[in-house]
Design a protein around this nucleic acid. Structure first.
Length: 523
RNA sequence: GGUCCGUUCAUCUAAGGGUUAGGAUUCAAGAUUUUCAUUCUUGCCAUAGGGGUUCGAAUCCCCUACGGACUACCA
C-alpha cells in the first residue's frame, strides 16, 4: 500500500516487539490544563506504570492560531507538581522525538498525499466563505450542511472537477485542503474498552479535513500518524473524542495499519458541580473551587484563575480525588497513594457516566492528607504564610501550634484564622462572647486564678488543668465560669484548641500578660 | 436538526440474575466537652418511567423521558 514506509527508531521497534504498553497524554497548548485533562493524564500514567509501559507527553499544536504562550510550560509544571511523570516527551526527548507536532510538520504531508493516491482522500478547493454560505443557506431551509457522500459531488473538489480543470487548479497554486473520503456503505466498529462496541454508518459521517491549506495537518491526521509512528498501544482520552473515533478507526484502515491500531478507551466527562454540562474553564471561580491544577494568569487579559496548588490542596489529595472520579478500586478503600493507585488501577473499573465534582468531599480528602503529615511537615507548610504575616517564631513553637490546630482545619492556610493568637496577642475581644460570658463576678475570679497560675511550679497542660480544677472546686463554681473568660483573655473569643494546651504553649509569662490586659480592658 | 454516549441516595460510587441495595462525602441527632472544631455513635436519603424475558431483574432486551458529547481548514 502506497510508497511510504516509515522506519521506526530502533528502540521503539524493540518496545513494539515486546508488546510493551505505550500511552500518550496529548494536550493542546491553548491555555491552562483543566482538571478533566489532568485526570486523563493521571489515568494514562496509572495504566502505563501498572503495565511497566511508557508514558509519553506529546504537544498537539497544529493550530497556530490558538497558541498561548506559557501553556506548554504550565502543563509540564502542573503534572510535575502532581507527581505524574513521563518517560518520553517534549520536555525530555526520547526515541520518537520530536514530540511537538509543529516540529513534526514535514512528516504529515506525505501521509495525506498517500491517502489521495490510494483513493481514501481528495483535494477540496472550497473556500471557507463558500462553505459558510452553504451552511447559512441550509440553516434557512431548516436543514444542515455537511461535507459528505451526498454533497461532495456538487462541491469544488478533485472528485467533481474534470482532470484538466483539476490539473489547472493544482498548478495555479489554488489553496486546497485534503479531506477524508468516507465510503458510502460500511459500518464502522469502534471497540472501546470502556463502552464496548460502538457502531456507526459511514455515510452519515462528514468528510473531515485531514490536511489544512496552511500546510498543517488537522488533529485527526496528526494524531493517527503520531500514534502509529510512536507505537502507541492504548489511546485513553476524554469522551468528547468518541464521535470522531470512527474516523480514526477508518484512517488506520486506510493506511493499512489495522494490525497495530491502538485500543481505545473513552473516559466519562467531568461535569459541573451544579446545573448541567461539562465542566468548563469558566465554572471554577464562579462556583468557588479551582478547575485548574495551578493558578493561571491569562497572558492577554491578565485575568487570574485559581489553582488547586494555590488554594492549599496537597498534590496527593488532588490525585486521590481525581482518581476516584470515574474509577474505583472495587473495595471500600478511598484514601489511596499513587502507589496504591498504580497497583489497583484497571480500565474495566472505569464508569461510563459523567462525574460531578464534589467540593465538600474534596475538602475532606485534603483534610485526611493534612492529618497524615507530621507537625514538623505542617510547620514547613505554614512557614510561607507566617512570612507573609510577618510573624517570627521558633520552628519548635510553630510545630507545636500545628499539632494543636491540625485536626481543626482542612487547609494549612486556615490555621491562621484558627490560631493567629498563638503569634499575636488578641487586640480586641469578641463582643458577643464577652456579653454572654464575661459576668460581673468574672474579674474577681480571674484575678484569683491569676494568682494560682503564677504560683504553679511548672506549666504543663496537666498542671494547668489540675490547678484550675482545684480552684473551681474550692470556689464552688462551674468549670465554664472561669475557663471561658480565660479563653477570651488568651484567645480573644470562644474558639480554639483545648485551653490548657494553649496556655501551656503560650507560656506562663504570656498568659499572665494577656490576663492582665483583658482585666484592664474588660474590667 | 443529525450522530453517538449515558441514567443507583443531594454528591462520588458498590452490588457483573437471588443482599434488609453496601460504603464514603454532605446533612440531622446523640455522645464527649471549658469554647469551637475534630472524633465516635446513630439516623435520613437511591435503582428515571413503562413494557417484556425469567421461578426471580438495579443487573438482560425494547420503548419513552431526561441528561450529555460531537456536529470548524479547533483540539
Amino acid at each position: 500500500m502506497g510508497g511510504f514506509l516509515y522506519f521506526y527508531p530502533f528502540k521503539l521497534q524493540e518496545c513494539m516487539d515486546q508488546g510493551k504498553v505505550r500511552v500518550r497524554f496529548a494536550p493542546s497548548p491553548t491555555g491552562p490544563l483543566h482538571i478533566g485533562g489532568v485526570r486523563t493524564a493521571l489515568y494514562n500514567y496509572l495504566f502505563a506504570r501498572q503495565h511497566g509501559g511508557a508514558m509519553i507527553l506529546r504537544i498537539e499544536d497544529t493550530d497556530q492560531g490558538r497558541f498561548v504562550p506559557g501553556a506548554e510550560e504550565y502543563i509540564i509544571e502542573a503534572l510535575s507538581w502532581l507527581g505524574i511523570g513521563f518517560d518520553e516527551g517534549v520536555h525530555m526527548g526520547g526515541p520518537c522525538a520530536p514530540y511537538r507536532q509543529s516540529d513534526r510538520k514535514p512528516m504529515y504531508e506525505p501521509y495525506a498525499r498517500q491517502l489521495v493516491e490510494t483513493g481514501w482522500a481528495y483535494y477540496a478547493f472550497d473556500t471557507p466563505q463558500e462553505l459558510e454560505s452553504r451552511r447559512k443557506d441550509a440553516e434557512q431551509n431548516g436543514s444542515t450542511f455537511q461535507y459528505d457522500v451526498r454533497t461532495r459531488d456538487g462541491l469544488n473538489n478533485s472528485l467533481s472537477l474534470s482532470p484538466s480543470l483539476l490539473q489547472e487548479r493544482l498548478e495555479s497554486g489554488t489553496p486546497y485542503v485534503i479531506r477524508f473520503k468516507f465510503p458510502d456503505d460500511t459500518e464502522i466498529l469502534v471497540d472501546d474498552l470502556i463502552r464496548g462496541e460502538v457502531r456507526v454508518q459511514s455515510h452519515l459521517l462528514d468528510d473531515k479535513v485531514l490536511f489544512k491549506s496552511d500546510g498543517m495537518p488537522t488533529y485527526h491526521l496528526a494524531n493517527i500518524v503520531d500514534d502509529h509512528t510512536m507505537g502507541i498501544t492504548h489511546v485513553i482520552r476524554g469522551e468528547e473524542w468518541l464521535p470522531s473515533a470512527p474516523l480514526h478507526v477508518m484512517l488506520y484502515k486506510a493506511f493499512g495499519w489495522e494490525d497495530t491500531m491502538p485500543r481505545f478507551a473513552h473516559l466519562p466527562l467531568l461535569l459541573k458541580p451544579e446545573g448541567n454540562g461539562k465542566l468548563s474553564k469558566r465554572d471554577g471561580d464562579r462556583l468557588g473551587f479551582p478547575v485548574f491544577p495551578l493558578q493561571w494568569k491569562d497572558p492577554v487579559s491578565g485575568e487570574i484563575s485559581s489553582g488547586y496548588r494555590e488554594s492549599g490542596y496537597y498534590p496527593e489529595a488532588v490525585v486521590n480525588i481525581l482518581a476516584l472520579m470515574g474509577w474505583n478500586p472495587g473495595t471500600d478503600q478511598e484514601l489511596m497513594s499513587m502507589e496504591d493507585l498504580i497497583a489497583s488501577f484497571s480500565l474495566d473499573r472505569i464508569s461510563k457516566s459523567g462525574a460531578r465534582f464534589d467540593l465538600e468531599k474534596a475538602k475532606w480528602f485534603n483534610h485526611q492528607y493534612l492529618l497524615a503529615r507530621t507537625d514538623v511537615q505542617l510547620a514547613g507548610d505554614l512557614a510561607p504564610i507566617l512570612r507573609v504575616k510577618q510573624v517570627e517564631a521558633s520552628p519548635d513553637f510553630v510545630a507545636s501550634v500545628c499539632g494543636l490546630l491540625r485536626g481543626r482545619v482542612n487547609f494549612v492556610h486556615e490555621m491562621w484564622a484558627q490560631g493567629s493568637f498563638f503569634f499575636i496577642a488578641p487586640q480586641e475581644y469578641d463582643e458577643q462572647a464577652v456579653r454572654k460570658r464575661w459576668k460581673p463576678e468574672t474579674p474577681a475570679l480571674l484575678s484569683q486564678l491569676r494568682e494560682v497560675l503564677e504560683a504553679l511550679p511548672t506549666f504543663t497542660p496537666l498542671d494547668i488543668h489540675e490547678a484550675v480544677a482545684a480552684f473551681v472546686a474550692s470556689a464552688q463554681i462551674g468549670m465554664g465560669a472561669v475557663m471561658i473568660p480565660l479563653r477570651i483573655a488568651l484567645v480573644g473569643g470562644t474558639f480554639g484548641p483545648d485551653l490548657q494546651d494553649v496556655a501551656s504553649l503560650l507560656g506562663r509569662d504570656e498568659v499572665l500578660r494577656r490576663l492582665d490586659r483583658a482585666l484592664q480592658v474588660l474590667g
